[in-house]
Amino acid sequence: MKNFSIIMSCLLLFGCSSATEGDKQLIGTWKSVLKDSETGMGIDEIVFVFTEDGKLIQHIGKGEMQHIVSSNYTVEGDQIITTEEQSNEKTRGNYVVDKDTLTISFEGLKNKFLKID
């Protein structure tokens, strides 16, 4: 459960109320593997979908075990701020986009995502 909480916090990094002019490079679909915070080993698939209207839809896992989280996001400098729609919880994390790779840093963990759309 601890790992799921860390994963969810990482996912929530991406949202607030609306996208800003400087974050157009985030728009699209990004795929990665979630990592266990203690071992660094991959534990599940994660897909982020950033929309132009400031929404972030997070797909965690596959099939019947898939969990979908909807958030809003904004960008301030090199940080993405997310607000999860159900809980209203805010989270921030640093990010860098380099061509088709998005790197997110949160609580000492870095996750790399590849753009798939």
Score class of each variant (00 low, 15 high):
D36H: 13
V96A: 13
H59Q: 09
E38W: 05
N94M: 11
D36P: 06
V97H: 02
E89M: 09
E21A: 08
T83L: 10
T82M: 11
T20H: 08
N88G: 08
S105D: 08
S71C: 13
L102C: 03
Y95W: 09
F4W: 12
L114M: 12
S105L: 09
E107Y: 07
I116Q: 12
L26N: 01
V33F: 06
K115S: 01
V33T: 14
Y73M: 09
T20V: 11
L102H: 01
M1I: 05
D23Y: 04
A19W: 01
F50E: 04
I104G: 01
G63V: 05
S18N: 13
L102V: 04
I80H: 03
K24Y: 05
T29Q: 11
F50S: 00
E21I: 01
I104A: 05
T101P: 03
G15H: 01
S18W: 06
E85L: 15
E45Q: 12
I7E: 00
N94W: 02
D53W: 02
S87W: 00
V96Q: 14
H67I: 14
T74P: 07
G28R: 06
I104V: 14
L114I: 15
L102T: 00
S17I: 12
G61E: 06
F113C: 10
T39K: 08
N72R: 12
I104N: 01
M1A: 12
D44R: 15
K35S: 07
F113P: 00
G40W: 02
L26Q: 07
I60P: 03
K99Q: 14
T74R: 15
E21S: 09
L109W: 06
E45T: 12
G77L: 04
D44H: 11
T74L: 13
I6L: 13
H59S: 10
F4N: 14
G22L: 13
S87N: 04
E45R: 12
T82V: 13
F50N: 00
A19C: 15
